[in-house]
């Protein structure tokens, strides 16, 4: 058969395309469970971290997560966990950053006066600049942080973090004002929703 003919070209292209799509479908099929499992583990770790619940490894995280309940408080979907008779809450947050959506979990006390912690699951901020929101020092600032007038203030000091639990302030990221402002806006929006929902109960 003439390799340059129209019929050969069409048939060849169709066969090759089919073969490679099949290869991709197989690769996808083989790894889909692992990928879903990874996402599940990440979600569990994130929720627990946001509530300040400590765990050693993925297995322990999965075990602890069994005790996490999904509840609704005044129409707001929350994760709840009881630690030594004390109730902890976490909520998934999402909002637009500089380049894309920032998504994660925010933990809060039942009376809505302190955040318990913050995690970032997903973001598309500039690597090394805004992307540093996924670093430990940035997120640790939200540990047991007291809210001032139901809000947290993003400041721009030296970019090393504000670990004073009562300051009500978060030190933003040097060189990433856009991302820092976006985080402040997203978090305060969700804090408002949280304090409203929880305030109704308290």
């Amino acid at each position: 058969m003439d390799k340059q003919s129209f019929a050969y070209t069409v048939i060849f292209t169709a066969v090759v395309t089919f073969a490679f799509v099949l290869l991709l479908a197989m690769a996808n099929e083989l790894t889909i469970e692992q990928i879903e499992f990874n996402q599940e583990v990440r979600l569990q770790r994130s929720v627990l971290q946001a509530m300040g619940v400590e765990f050693q490894d993925d297995e322990q995280a999965a075990e602890l997560f069994e005790r996490v309940e999904q509840i609704e408080v005044n129409g707001l979907g929350l994760y709840s966990y009881e630690r030594d008779g004390e109730q902890l809450y976490a909520k998934e947050y999402a909002g637009s950053g500089v380049w894309g959506t920032i998504r994660g979990h925010l933990g809060i006390t039942p009376d809505g006066t302190r955040t318990l912690g913050l995690t970032v699951l997903e973001h598309e901020e500039t690597p090394g600049l805004g992307g540093r929101i996924d670093e430990g020092w940035f997120q640790e600032q939200f540990r047991n942080k007291r809210l001032v007038d139901g809000r947290l203030e993003m400041t721009s000091r030296d970019g090393t973090g504000d670990f004073d639990e009562d300051s009500g302030e978060i030190d933003g990221i040097t060189g990433a004002t856009g991302t820092s402002d976006a985080m402040a806006r997203i978090i305060n929006d969700h804090l408002q929703q949280l304090t409203q929902a929880l305030g109704g109960a308290a």
């Binding site: 490679f20 290869l23 991709l24 996808n28 790894t31 692992q34 990928i35 990874n38």
Partner: peptide, 18 residues
């Protein structure tokens, strides 16, 4: 291009899984 794209996607899937 089809060949390159297929292998790249396979690599991407493997990275995402492992």
């Amino acid at each position: 291009t089809l060949i390159i794209a297929s292998y790249v996607i396979v690599v991407d899937i493997i990275l995402r899984a492992y």
